[in-house]
């Protein structure tokens, strides 16, 4: 095993096994959380002025450790950082007091147009410098390290000079930020682009990996589509085991964004993650 949480110089609290909080499971989660130990909220869903969303948020905040996960920071865009977004994100972080704040290593729009998608970056020195400077700005504003998540991607760029994992690792090291490693996204991109998911795991700085996402995908005709609307696949469970072996104890959650099953099914998936990881972690302890 390469790393344990005690060896992580940048480590935030270890939260255990959690779920992404979605409206569809509000009632069930409060009624019977089972062994769900923490929740990840989608930041934008609560960047509102008032009403029910914030009432629910406060209820969950009383019961669970929360982390904030955004989709609109657009850290890689060549448009200026959206100051309004940043100030609202900061205000939400002050209200929630999350264990950490994360977003994606991507861009979501340019020229004032938002694609509402996690668009991949070309892995060039120019993009690296650009992202690093913006991560530093965001971290200075939020007064905390952020986590950046690897996205599933379908295109690559002719100008890329680095692998995705080299780029992600370099961003984390140079900007002094942390990594949210989506195991499903590693698998999806590996299959779509033909690289080794194990090379990916071995290629990123282990001490900066703070959180795992587990999710499901859809098999298209040629490419795998990251839908987050299906159970975690066997291939992703296998890769999760390798990730636990490699990174050690990392806060882990199931992220379902559509085609929501009853909460019990997600809790069962989470128990499966626990059952896979804990024996390995205990054997290594």
């Amino acid at each position: 095993m390469a790393m344990t949480s005690n060896e992580r110089p940048h480590s935030l609290p270890y939260l255990g096994y959690g779920l992404g909080l979605r409206v569809e499971h509000y009632e069930a989660l409060l009624a019977d959380p089972g062994r769900v130990e923490w929740l990840e909220i989608v930041s934008e869903n609560y960047m509102v002025q008032g009403g029910l969303p914030l009432i629910w948020l406060d209820r969950f905040r009383e019961r669970f450790p929360l982390v904030m996960h955004g989709v609109s920071l657009s850290i890689g865009s060549t448009d200026p950082l959206d100051e309004d977004y940043l100030s609202r994100l900061q205000a939400l972080a002050q209200r929630v007091e999350p264990a950490w704040v994360s977003d994606h290593l991507c861009w979501t729009g340019v020229q004032g147009v938002n694609l509402h998608d996690l668009m991949p970056l070309p892995y060039t020195e120019e993009a690296l410098e650009h992202v690093v400077s913006r991560v530093k700005r965001v971290q200075d504003t939020l007064k905390r390290r952020i986590l950046l998540e690897n996205v599933s991607s379908y295109v690559t760029f002719a100008d890329s000079q680095l692998t995705e994992w080299e780029f992600l690792g370099a961003v984390a090291e140079r900007a002094d930020c942390l990594i949210l490693l989506d195991i499903n996204n590693v698998h999806v991109s590996a299959m779509n682009h033909g690289f080794s998911s194990m090379d990916y795991l071995r290629g990123i700085p282990a001490e900066r990996v703070q959180q795992f996402h587990l999710a499901g995908y859809e098999q298209g005709e040629q490419l795998i589509i990251d839908t987050h609307d299906a159970p975690v696949s066997n291939a992703v469970w296998d890769l999760y085991v390798e990730a636990v072996r490699h990174f050690g104890r990392v806060s882990t959650m199931i992220e379902r964004d559509d085609n929501f099953p009853p909460l019990a099914e997600l809790r069962a998936e989470l128990e499966h993650a626990r059952a896979l990881a804990e024996p390995l972690l205990q054997a290594a302890a």
């Binding site: 690559t156 760029f157 002719a158 490419l223």
Partner: peptide, 29 residues
Amino acid sequence: LQAIQQQLLHAVLAADSIPPPVISGNAIA
């Protein structure tokens, strides 16, 4: 980087079947 993002953005918005030269395909797709 800006040119790459603008080309990809316009390709997504236009729904054009011809991809911009900045993106690559391979044997998979």
